[in-house]
Design a protein around this nucleic acid. Structure first.
Lengths: 196, 196
DNA sequence: GACAGCCTCCCTACCAGAAGGTAGACAGGG
DNA sequence: CCCTGTCTACCTTCTGGTAGGGAGGCTGTC
């Protein structure tokens, strides 16, 4: 059976889906086994412990994000369009219910109860995302492509918080359209064309 | 032993602390028993099932919030000051680590995995908070006390999302000061004194 | 080419502990 | 006498994790 995905990839994928819906303590090896069609014990062959599994998952998640951002910056130069692309990515994920929540945002919420190795990876993701958004804000400010009212770092943090909060609201209300509705004014405000 | 708090209040309080740090599946009856100094079975006397316990907790949480908001509106009239008071409340809670996260924000993140009765209560909290913030925005807009750039409803949702996202970031970074730093520009922007 | 050895991957069977929850007894107060 | 609140003791199910074995594929050596 020439699978397109390796078993360990399938395990990671189903773990991601499960963790996205219920957090670190919201899924078990048995759940994954059920989805992947494998026995519980076999998962331990790929990931000795649950901590290994989730640490790998978050690690990979950040790497994917780094690659995604790098690819995006190849295609898109305009800072505002970059921010729109980032927000749009999540709008789509929420809309089609494929990946309705950021793994790291969810894990961050239960950070105090997380094994330290995983907590570290989650923090690393936040640092990465914040650094990227800050760089976008900085460049936008320099080039006059963004209309900032605070320091780039603060604008970046505020933007990230809006995205995460909007994700949460979309989930709470069960209505995907609330996400773009929340982000729209923020993006509008950052647009240089409507500067005062 | 004339306790100030009844046992069931103590159970609810410790459940709240525990749930705040690790979510619905992040704590057990045994954990509560350890904190309160009671046996596991005794908790079932007060709350037959875990669902009962958490549903009551969230119910009470919303009632407290409703009372708190009502009391606040007695003291404070100015809409901007109301928003500042709300943000300030959380800034304090995060700062002194007493209640570093909103129970409902945390539960909302794991909403798909929550028992429906609890999910319903969480949604009710979001609706309440949104309704209140919308009413504040509406009045602020009417009275010229707030500088809105979108419809009151949208501004309210965006503000709530900022607060929740900022909470998450403060937790992720482990630095409380990030919360007020994120909220400051948002409040600044809403201030009528710096209107364009 | 044959075969031994090893490695990968998955299996069954099991384990100890923790999960939520129940049954029933006992103490104290109204 | 009953009601409230707590206890001990126990149950079932699920939890992450282990032990050991078997099938299949690759490789090195004769």
């Amino acid at each position: 059976m020439s699978n397109l995905l390796t078993t360990s990839d399938e395990i990671l994928a189903s773990a991601r889906t499960l963790i996205t819906s219920g957090g670190y303590n919201g899924f078990s090896y048995a759940d994954i086994a059920g989805v992947v069609g494998i026995r519980k014990a076999s998962i331990h062959h790929h990931f000795p412990s649950k901590v290994d599994l989730v640490r790998t998952l978050v690690e990979r998640y950040r790497e994917d994000a780094e690659l995604g951002v790098a690819a995006l910056e190849q295609d898109v130069q305009d800072p505002l369009e970059l921010l729109k692309a980032y927000a749009g990515h999540w709008a789509n994920c929420i809309e089609d219910a494929s990946r309705p929540f950021c793994v790291c945002a969810l894990l961050a919420s239960e950070l105090p109860a997380l094994p330290p190795e995983i907590a570290g990876e989650v923090k690393a993701f936040f640092r990465f995302l914040s650094a990227w958004l800050t760089s976008v804000m900085e460049r936008g400010s320099r080039e006059g492509a963004l209309n900032l009212s605070s320091q780039p770092r603060v604008e970046a943090e505020a933007f990230m918080a809006s995205v995460h909060g909007a994700m949460l609201s979309a989930r709470a209300y069960g209505t995907p359209e609330v996400f773009p509705a929340i982000l729209a004014p923020t993006l509008q405000r950052l647009s240089p064309t409507v500067a005062q």
